[in-house]
């Protein structure tokens, strides 16, 4: 077997293992309290009869391991159970929302990834001078403010003061793509700001690291212009770390989405999760947690595989 293929297969197997581990963690996370889920769902005023009914409905009389495997098997078949609060099928309720969330996240990624790489390159080119300082300063400010506050600052500036975009991102099935883009402009701006700082800083560090190699000095000595050195010699060698940076930040984006969706009342997965945490609707929370963990692990896995593929030393083994 080609060694590269072997490494990729290993990573995928590891990713699956990690996903199973995540499902254990999520399931165990709802079992940590001294009583049981039914008692905490119903609160202190619950009658013994109501408790017994809910326990029977949720299958709590079974031991935890039995319930875990039943839950996991169901999830693997696309059956995530029914919500406690409105008896709806969770998988059906989630489908549309997952689509919305991925739409929002991919719009943000489509802007943030090229922009942060470009800014990283500019910062390296003008290292220590004002463009570098300006970019670093602004990104330090954006990573120091939590996502939701960034959201309200953007609403205050762009939706209230200048009325450029709507402050609430209501999205529904019949909208055209143009309308959708107009509506989600503000959440996209916030998400871009959230990941831009980290991504740009890590890109800058990755390229700077490469810039210290001897072959860059050679390129300098043979008289190449600075931008040509970066574009032709430094960047191709920095691709592997940069790809890694991008993927890790996309995984982070998926988490940032949770908060941003609440700020903009966007009908996605994040809002679904937060609403049902407040309602103590445990099956929904577990299902959402599992989906988020799967996306998160998926991106990290993709980062691993892409950085293996992008590494020339691994691509051409001797």
């Amino acid at each position: 077997m080609h060694p590269l293929l072997k490494m990729v297969v290993q990573r995928v197997a590891l990713g699956c293992l990690l996903l199973i581990a995540a499902s254990v963690a999520i399931f165990a996370g709802t079992e940590v309290l001294p009583g049981d889920v039914a008692a905490s769902v119903l609160g202190q005023s619950a009658t013994p009869q109501a408790l017994a009914n809910l326990r029977a409905e949720m299958g709590l009389d079974e031991p935890a391991t039995t319930r875990y495997f039943a839950w996991l098997l169901g999830a693997l078949h696309g059956d995530l159970g029914t919500a406690l609060s409105n008896k709806q099928d969770i998988a059906a309720a989630m489908g549309q929302r997952l689509g919305n969330t991925l739409f929002l996240a991919s719009c943000a990624a489509a802007i943030a990834v090229p922009l942060s790489i470009l800014l990283g390159l500019i910062a390296v080119r003008y290292r220590g001078r004002w463009p570098d300082r300006l970019i670093s300063g602004v990104t330090l400010a954006t990573v120091s403010v939590p996502e939701f506050l960034l959201g309200y600052i953007v609403i205050f500036a762009l939706a209230v003061k200048y009325r450029l975009f709507p402050s609430v991102a209501t999205i529904y099935a019949g909208m055209s793509l143009g309308e959708k883009l107009q509506v989600i402009a503000l959440p996209v701006i916030v998400l871009v700001l959230v990941v831009l700082g980290h991504m740009m800083r890590m890109t800058r560090a990755a390229i700077l690291n490469v810039m210290q190699s001897p072959y860059i000095e050679t390129a300098e000595l043979k008289g190449l212009r600075p931008f040509a050195i970066i574009a032709r010699h430094a960047f191709p060698n920095a691709i592997a770390p940069v790809v890694n940076v991008v993927m890790i930040n996309l995984a982070y984006l998926v988490v940032g989405v949770v908060v941003v969706e609440v700020v903009f009342v966007y009908p996605g997965m994040g809002q679904y999760l937060v609403d049902h945490v407040a309602k103590r609707d445990v099956p929904v929370v577990q299902a959402c947690g599992l989906v988020f963990a799967a996306v998160y692990i998926g991106f990290n896995l993709l980062a691993d595989i892409l950085s293996i593929l992008a590494n020339p030393r691994l691509r051409h083994p001797r």
Binding site: L18, L273, G289
Partner: peptide, 11 residues
């Protein structure tokens, strides 16, 4: 393996 905000919400 689970993002900490998501884990905190689950708990």
């Amino acid at each position: 393996s689970v993002p900490s905000l998501i884990f905190a919400l689950v708990v």
